[in-house]
Write a protein that binds this DNA or RNA. Structure first.
Lengths: 241, 241
DNA sequence: TTCTAGTCGCGAACGGTGTTCGTGTCAACT
DNA sequence: AGTTGACACGAACACCGTTCGCGACTAGAA
């Protein structure tokens, strides 16, 4: 035993393997081999592979830089935070999938993350029940986008990517029957586009535009008729609190 | 050999096992046992477990009812479609995770699904590049929500759910340091809320509000400067002189 | 210093997984 | 009837996460 085992060391080693060889190669045996020991030894410090994965996610999330909430810049702060979060997730291939699987944010870093997102969202003027919804949408989208970005960049080689993406799919879509898939046909080149960066920014903007619209709608409704019987699901959620 | 094997039969059997015993129980051996044969026999009709899963997803998606696009009711049509899609995914536990993993919509049903979503979205007046973005956000959210709903309903018993959700988490959040997590503390009861249905509706409404806002912004910009980007022949003539 | 007690690392094994290979069987066509 | 070809499938391979219990090493008692 060259070096004393510890949770910290195990997580660190696992992250190295993850970055170097991908999520599929991350087995308990592989980690143990890297540490010069057997797989059984890991279970003294980590109860589960699942727990190990959550620890990995914790470590990745803890590296996301966060700033003090400034109510006037809430939208830009949200954009910036989403950017950083996705960057951190994408940097460690496969970790985003873990984030999607773990629904309950148990760890400290995950709580920090949620707090950093909720602050600006509440500053938008949205009522709290809708803040919860917007939080849901925004974080789910960020995670899902990271999963997609991972899968796009890691799973295939450059050759297979170009072939299977540009050739087979784009050409396949151009050959679709026009009477059955008019919209798909018209959107063809846009859907397979590889400029993920721009599309991510636009998606965040779209969600933020939704937040602004609903916040404005809410403040308008409150000032005009404070005790209205709203019928839309949005208002009913708001009322249920 | 009691019954001739076929892709169709294998997929059907797999879906039954999935519904009855969950995604974890869905192994090639299990399917083969159910069919009274060995696992190797399946590989004559299905090249992969991954392919089998995509076939399962295809089958589930093909059962989503779709209607003719009506430009005047585009928002309601979107809402309805998202509802049905999520219902179909949630009905077969674990299939939503497959939908998230498969980024490229290869199958026929997936293409139908995309077409049904793109139609109403284009009717909103959004420019096509933003339609692609909205499509991204909407479908990713629907899938991710279905994953979450699955995990919430299937993984635990009622006892563990009540204990671990309401007690441990809600009580845990109430004990958070107020100076570090003010927003989390204020939102506590709302985030762990189990009324997933209402929150899903509200989330879709939020995204649709974003679409409406961006569409309005776009049409405003176009009416203000109609001769933009060299589209008018007059302008191009004028510029060329 | 020697002997004992106890801790804990970890090799080996268990019960699973997806997938492949080669054999065996059976139906259909010549 | 004979040949051929397709297909079913038992067995095996290389993995996986996890558990058990042996054995080595440390620390305390004599």
């Amino acid at each position: 035993m060259r070096q004393q085992l510890s949770r910290e060391l195990i997580v660190e080693t696992a992250l190295e393997i993850l970055d170097r060889e991908g999520m599929d190669a991350l087995s308990m045996r592989r980690i143990a081999t890297e540490l010069g020991t057997g797989a059984a030894s890991l279970y003294a410090h980590v109860s589960n592979k699942e727990e190990l994965q959550e620890l990995l996610l914790e470590r990745v999330l803890s590296q996301v830089q966060r700033e003090e909430p400034d109510p006037d810049r809430w939208a830009d702060q949200l954009r910036e935070l989403c950017r950083r979060t996705v960057d951190a997730l994408v940097a460690h291939n496969g970790i985003a999938r873990v984030a999607l699987a773990a629904i309950v944010p148990t760890g400290e870093a995950a709580l920090d993350q949620a707090e950093a997102m909720l602050g600006p969202l509440r500053a938008s003027g949205l009522p709290d029940p809708l803040v919860a919804v917007a939080f849901d949408v925004l974080s789910l989208y960020c995670t899902a986008y990271a999963v997609e970005a991972n899968a796009m960049r890691s799973g295939e080689f450059t050759e297979a990517q170009v072939l299977e993406r540009t050739q087979q799919l784009s050409q396949y879509m151009a050959a679709l029957p026009a009477d059955r898939f008019p919209a798909l046909l018209a959107m063809g080149p846009l859907l397979g586009a590889a400029d993920g960066e721009q599309r991510f920014q636009a998606a965040i903007d779209l969600i933020i535009a939704g937040v602004e619209a609903l916040a404005a709608r809410e403040s308008r409704a409150r000032s005009r008729r404070p005790l209205d019987r709203g019928l839309s699901s949005i208002e009913s959620v708001h009322r249920s609190s």
